[in-house]
């Protein structure tokens, strides 16, 4: 009975978690090699070749990396600052509930909110106008759909910072960092040394795997760049999906080649990451 249950659940898991991924990547691979799909022209590596020499693919990957890097740097900095300076505020009292509230908003909604805040005719611009800082719509800087991804980065920071504050607050408590800080002080560390040599290194090391996962999550994000990105620089998910939905049939196998490439990169990353941490 127990054995039957065990194998049925494990089979279900393989069917719903393993098979779809393999089937999806398999189909994408066959399509990109010309072995299936509308074109079905017979084995060819021309689509892979075209994808790999396509500058916009590498620009898109680079842009995604840039967005994730800037987002994570700023969000980690803000969250560490908040937890180190005001850690207790998140453990009890109303902030311990409020800090979870941003997690109840999906990316789509936070993206929409950023747009209402940062657009040329958005709330900030209106406040600036009322305060006499701006005389014309054109005076307000371009913060959404811009080529530097300011709107995308802002939105991701809004989502990541509360999440990281919660993560660091829990780690701070679970890893008993207070005792470590006290220990460091008895060894002669001054307050900044305790922060820079004990608290921050421990927090970053213990959260490393989660931070990498979040980095990948930002890199792969779709809704936010779709709402707030520009046509000239696209993040990888938007770039791939747009290529898939173009009328030019030659674009589809290339899009699948990119999907396979991206999938492979992630698989290598997961194996490296889980190999590192127990």
């Amino acid at each position: 009975m127990h054995v039957i249950a065990k194998y049925s659940y494990l089979t279900l898991f393989i069917l719903l978690a393993g098979v779809p991924l393999l089937a999806g990547l398999g189909y994408a691979l066959l399509y990109s090699l010309g072995l299936t799909g509308v074109l079905n022209e017979g084995f060819t590596i021309v689509h892979w070749y075209k994808s790999l020499i396509n500058r916009s693919l590498w620009q898109s990957l680079g842009f995604s990396f840039y967005i994730a890097f800037i987002t994570m740097s700023i969000a980690i900095g803000l969250a560490l600052w908040a937890v180190v300076r005001q850690g207790e505020a998140f453990r009890s009292g109303y902030l311990s509930f409020l800090i979870y509230l941003p997690l109840t908003l999906p990316a789509t909604v936070i993206g929409f909110y950023s747009f209402q805040l940062l657009a040329k005719s958005g709330l900030l611009s209106r406040l600036g106008f009322q305060a006499g800082l701006l005389n014309d719509l054109a005076d307000f800087p371009v913060l959404v759909n811009d080529s530097w991804g300011v709107g995308i980065i802002f939105t991701h920071i809004c989502m990541a910072t509360p999440f990281l504050i919660i993560l660091f607050t829990n780690l701070y408590h679970n890893e008993n960092l207070k005792s470590f800080a006290a220990l460091a002080q008895t060894l002669g560390a001054r307050a900044p040394q305790v922060i820079w040599r004990v608290i921050i290194p421990v927090l970053l090391q213990k959260s490393f795997a989660t931070l990498v996962l979040y980095f990948v999550f930002v890199m792969s994000s779709y809704e936010i760049p779709l709402l707030l990105g520009s046509q000239s620089r696209q993040m990888i998910s938007v770039f791939t999906i747009e290529k898939l939905q173009r009328f030019n049939l030659q674009d589809i196998p290339q899009a699948y080649a990119i999907s396979v490439l991206y999938g492979m990169l992630l698989i290598i990353l997961v194996i490296k990451l889980l190999g590192r941490n127990k």
């Binding site: 779809p20 991924l21 999806g24 990547l25 189909y27 792969s220 998910s237 999907s259």
Partner: peptide, 11 residues
């Protein structure tokens, strides 16, 4: 970890 939208495109 896989971007859900890309997984959907492949499926």
């Amino acid at each position: 970890m896989f971007a859900p939208v890309i997984l959907a495109a492949c499926l």
